[in-house]
Design a protein around this nucleic acid. Structure first.
Length: 258
DNA sequence: TTGCATGTTCCGGA
DNA sequence: GTCCGGAACATGCA
């Protein structure tokens, strides 16, 4: 589930439920999911302090608590949930931040991703590694600048978090379908007109997804049909193709995307 | 039983 | 150094 729009949804969720609340204690049913501290150290660092205002960069969620920060990455199956008490916990709740009046749960079936603690911005940067500008706010100029020196295929470029942060497999296919660009096309083969179209498609797809807090399944979205047995292009009705590009299963329309 | 899944990282080879 | 493919990680589902 989690690409940029999903993580933005989690950010809003955390803000709505937990911001301003004091953490009482931290339960860690799956100690290995806490990546850079022991559960005991994490608990001591958080307990007694209040959640601040959460922020997001790409697929990372940062939740300040007192004078430290909780870093959350959701991998492929992560999510947040909230409960009034511990009665309806899920077997995949890996870290539970028990607050006054309820508990915030980090749930992750497949255990990619995880939870980190950072004492300052340097530590945060060490954990996340280099990240490009967030896809939701990238300017036309910086987009052009980033593509200028980029080699390799365009889908790989869109998904590279060091180049642009937040775009994953589904969104990259959605953006390329909108821009009518083949996912394997080399970045350097894109004309100025196509680069502009790509930028507009990125802003539109990311912007619209953000409003929903997920990649929508609307009528004019590839996401709605890409899981079908014989998916058809929502634009021209011809059969879509699937194959591995940049290490992931790409879905595109051979008629629309050149 | 096998293959595949919205993510990241590491390794080897071109 | 760059880029790509493949494997690994962990788990469930069709």
């Amino acid at each position: 589930m989690p690409e940029l729009p999903d993580v933005e949804g989690f950010r809003r969720f955390l803000a709505r439920h937990a911001e301003g609340r004091r953490i009482v204690r931290v339960d860690v049913p799956d100690p290995a999911i806490v990546r850079n501290r022991t559960p005991q150290v994490l608990g001591r660092a958080l307990a007694g302090n209040r959640f601040g205002s959460p922020h997001r960069h790409g697929k990372w969620l940062f939740a300040p608590v007192g004078d430290v920060e909780l870093l959350l990455h959701f991998g492929m199956t992560g999510l947040l949930s909230w409960g009034e008490d511990d009665s309806d916990r899920d077997r995949y709740d890996r870290v539970i931040l028990v607050c006054e009046g309820g508990e915030l749960r980090y749930n992750n079936m497949r255990r990619f991703g995880g939870v980190w603690l950072a004492r300052d911005e340097q530590e945060r940067a060490r954990v996340t590694g280099p990240l490009g500008p967030d896809a939701a706010g990238i300017s036309r100029d910086s987009f052009e600048r980033l593509l200028r020196n980029r080699r390799g295929g365009v889908k790989a470029a869109l998904m590279d978090q060091r180049l642009i942060a937040g775009i994953g497999n589904l969104l990259s296919d959605e953006i390329l379908w909108r821009a009518r660009i083949h996912p394997a096309r080399p970045v350097q083969s894109l004309t100025a007109v196509r680069r502009r179209r790509l930028y507009e498609a990125l802003r539109a797809a990311v912007g619209e997804s953000l409003r929903y807090g997920r990649v929508p399944h609307g009528a004019r979205w590839l996401t709605r049909v890409r899981g079908d047995k014989h998916p058809a292009c929502p634009r021209c009705g011809r059969p879509l193709r699937r194959s591995t590009i940049a290490g992931r299963t790409a879905c595109w329309c051979p008629h629309c995307q050149k």
